[in-house]
């Protein structure tokens, strides 16, 4: 960044910038360690902090921590005062079993499993007033739920290319929740080993490039399918949704053509 940098320092900055954005290979990480050992460059976190500041400022957190994950984190939290940094990992994560303990576990695994099963059965039978967990809602139920939320939009598909004229269905999207579903019927079957459908979300307020909405396959044209949208980036106010056929796994930049489009009026 300054013209006065010597070659090793410039290489250090190259590696620090890479670490802050795309990460380093093991070889690059070792090279960085070696170079830093011989360098006067003191603030090795500065590039990472700059990238993090940009991330926090320009990419808003979109989701609150799920309650189940919060409970899991609390269970994993240190029980008492945090130890010295290098020892804390062992207190938070389960320590590996010693060999003798492991042999004991293998030998008694069958008895232990049986005893645990009996215990679970007894506890499950005995605990009064505990209802079984409700089944997870289906995609159709989740879609209906989303349709009932404020700010949810619903737009119909329109086939553009030959063979896609009879595609029916719609897109449901909620910019606040960053969740949505595609409902599709009549989409021609694709061969996943050769091509996959890829959803694109056009949202000029978010990005000048269409946002990757994930790839999926169509197995049967006669049945209606509901596909959850997994946008790679936030899309607060999409103007259109489009499907293309791309190489397996999807592409970063598509040349089209747009097969089916759902436009927000």
């Amino acid at each position: 960044m300054t013209s006065s940098l010597n070659a090793p320092d410039e290489r250090i900055e190259d590696l620090l910038a890479d670490r802050a954005t795309v990460g380093l290979t093991e070889a690059e990480a070792r090279q960085l360690d070696d170079l830093q050992a011989d360098s006067s460059e003191a603030d090795t976190d500065a590039f990472d902090l700059a990238a993090a500041a940009v991330d926090v400022a320009l990419a808003p957190p979109t989701e609150a921590l799920p309650a189940g994950l919060r409970a899991r984190l609390l269970r994993a939290a240190p029980e008492s005062e945090p130890p010295a940094p290098d020892a804390a990992q062992d207190r938070v994560l389960p320590a590996p079993a010693r060999r003798s303990t492991l042999r004991f576990r293998f030998r008694d695994l069958g008895w232990f499993a049986a005893a645990a099963a009996v215990l679970l059965a007894v506890v499950g039978w005995w605990r009064p007033g505990v209802a079984p967990a409700p089944p997870a809602p289906t995609l159709a139920e989740q879609r209906r739920q989303l349709l009932g939320s404020p700010q949810t939009i619903r737009v119909a598909w329109k086939g553009l290319e030959a063979g896609y004229e009879k595609v029916e269905g719609d897109v449901v999207w909620n910019g606040d929740k960053q969740a949505g579903f595609m409902r599709l019927k009549g989409l021609p079957v694709n061969d996943p080993s050769k091509k996959q459908y890829q959803l694109w979300i056009v949202d000029p307020a978010r990005d000048k490039h269409p946002i990757d909405g994930g790839v999926f396959d169509s197995a049967a044209t006669g049945r209606e399918a509901i596909v959850p949208i997994r946008a790679k980036l936030n899309s607060p106010s999409p103007k259109a949704f489009a499907l293309t056929l791309e190489q397996p796994g999807g592409v970063v930049v598509s040349a089209g053509p747009l097969l089916v489009v759902a436009s927000v009026q």
Binding site: E161, P210, A240, A242, V253, S254, A255
Partner: peptide, 16 residues
């Protein structure tokens, strides 16, 4: 292309 009546052959480049 994106909002009113997308014609056949429209590409993402146009939208971009």
């Amino acid at each position: 292309v994106a909002v009113v009546h997308p014609p056949p052959g429209a590409s993402l480049g146009c939208l971009r």
